[in-house]
Write a protein that binds this DNA or RNA. Structure first.
Lengths: 186, 186
DNA sequence: ACGGTTTATGCAACTAGTTGCACAAGGTGA
DNA sequence: TCACCTTGTGCAACTAGTTGCATAAACCGT
């Protein structure tokens, strides 16, 4: 139940239209809370109906016309409430770890290539995060908002660092397992 | 679309009833692929209908009677196919990071306590993983299956290590932000 | 001025996961 | 012996997220 709050946060940072939000989700918030444009439009409709945001006045609010939203006081209050509330961590689900566990039973045939691919993806993501850090968080500036946003970015960097290291080890381990094409039949 | 494969893996490790599976999900596979008993029963039904598993012969298959399942060759084949297939990583969603980002806009009031709580939860999980490592992976034994399972466990350990470290920093950072009860109004 | 691409909004149907409850059998103590 | 608790199985309804497609305006070359 966090998508509405992600949208409220994004809109407080800057009032936007559905498509602008979609783009910003792809670039920054989406790194830890992804959403498609359909989800976003649907949620904008709900938030407006609930009186948490409103469409900025415009000439004709027709289809194909940009429609920007801003957060109302009730929306800010709801976001503050949600941020402060205690929440249990949702269980993670990780397909790759599951596949490795399955490979322990049915064999590792074909797995190594995909591990390498994942390694590359994570390396790319890590590089992107470091780029952002260099650009947006040069040493020195540390207002409150910057501090918190930097903290979030650092979580991303450290997570990707973990994955690249772990995947390198996984690739190496899987590569040196007995025999090519091993597949552990019944 | 991984729950059926998680179940196939678990059943290959050891044929089980629905409830036994539920318990094993809580203890081990569930660390990276959680599932409730309702999900498991539903999926067992589907897997049986699809001919990937079958119920072990028993006396009366009535309600309240244990019913164990084993994997059929078609099930093993499907699991092997899935394990080897290339898959894109699903986007993560992390509420805590989102809340921190929201806090940068609406203020950190009330957040610190929950960060501490999360820190404790991750410390506990980390301790549990280390316990399992000591128990199940003493130095020396390293068959193929052990190697892979140990690799998965190590991912869990490293992930929890990351979280505990990051959360410690987050708690410290949030604690020293300007003023108690800061809340950054419009 | 017309046909194609890009920008922008949105609906509908589907899949996956969660929550809440119902039902049956077997054991246990009063 | 009967009320209650535990174990085990399961349905139904709901919530969240995904996929595929429809629609419309604007911009752009010919």
């Amino acid at each position: 139940m966090s998508l509405p709050h992600a949208i409220l946060t994004a809109l407080l940072e800057k009032p936007s239209s559905g498509l602008e939000l979609t783009r910003r989700f792809d670039r920054s918030i989406g790194y830890f809370w992804s959403a498609t444009h359909q989800q976003i439009y649907r949620e904008l409709g709900k938030l407006e109906a609930d009186g948490l945001i409103r469409a900025l006045p415009t000439q004709q609010p027709a289809r194909g016309q940009k429609k920007s939203y801003e957060v109302l006081p009730a929306g800010r209050a709801e976001l503050a409430r949600w941020t402060a509330a205690s929440q249990d961590p949702k269980p993670h689900r990780d397909t790759l770890l599951l596949r490795l566990r399955a490979a322990a039973v049915v064999g590792t045939a074909g797995l190594e290539a995909d591990l390498r691919r994942h390694l590359e993806l994570h390396e790319r993501q890590l590089a992107e995060y470091r780029e952002i850090e260099k650009r947006d968080f040069p040493p020195g500036r540390d207002g409150t908002e910057d501090r918190l946003r930097h903290l979030v970015l650092r979580a991303g960097i450290d997570l990707e660092t973990f994955w690249t290291q772990w995947l390198r080890r996984a690739v190496a381990d899987v590569a040196e397992l007995p025999g090519p094409e091993r597949s552990h039949p019944a």
